[in-house]
Amino acid sequence: MSPEMLDLLGQSLVETLWMVGISGLVGTLFGLPLGILLVITDRGALLQNVAFNRVLGAVANAVRSTPFIILLVAIIPFTRWVAGTSIGTTAAIVPLSIAATPFIARLVEAALREVDRGLIEALLAMGATPGQIVRKVLLPEALPGIVSALTITIVSLIGHSAMAGAVGGGGLGDLGIRYGYQRFLPEVMAAVVVVLILLVQAIQSAGDRLARRLDHR
């Protein structure tokens, strides 16, 4: 492979990491609180609000059931409003974040539901406020699960980011399509696939190791 190609590969890797990193961050920023809300407003939970819980759940499901490539195109006006442009790496971050948010919310919800009800009881008996219960019990006890959830999210964002080429987002997937497929350069395609495999492996094993380190059960 030519040095220019290697350069391009490096640049695409950075673009992918940038898109995935920022959308993962934004997705967590919104998804984590939404996951907490899904748990604590459920029937019989700390701050029961069944109507709110239903609506939130329905919205999360709606976003999650929209195929990413459709979401990408459908929200272009919104993307332009947020990012100032609907083309490019930064513009791709908007739909990626929107896809990541309900994904993270649902995974965080599942992790929080694993926390033993007895612990919440114990904290209530100590006179803890709902906020204290979330901070002192729900989040710390579910932390290994949340780390696993974020690992899965990042891996799946790497997959989604390959479609960002549709809005000129760049990244490894885009490189593979444009050079590997359209210009028929199989070695570029192979290189992209290898880099993606290594990237996913590295993230998954780092996430697993961290989750295990945090788990004292």
């Binding site: 007895g118 612990l119 100590m126 006179g127 002192k136 710390p140 006890e141 932390l143 004292h216």
Partner: peptide
């Protein structure tokens, strides 16, 4: 006020209910 009262009532459980993370 109820939370303040609960702070002065200790409780222990059959399955201990300790935080695994602490």
């Amino acid at each position: 006020a109820l939370r303040a009262v609960r702070r002065r009532i200790g409780m222990i459980f059959q399955h201990f209910n300790l935080l695994a993370s602490r």
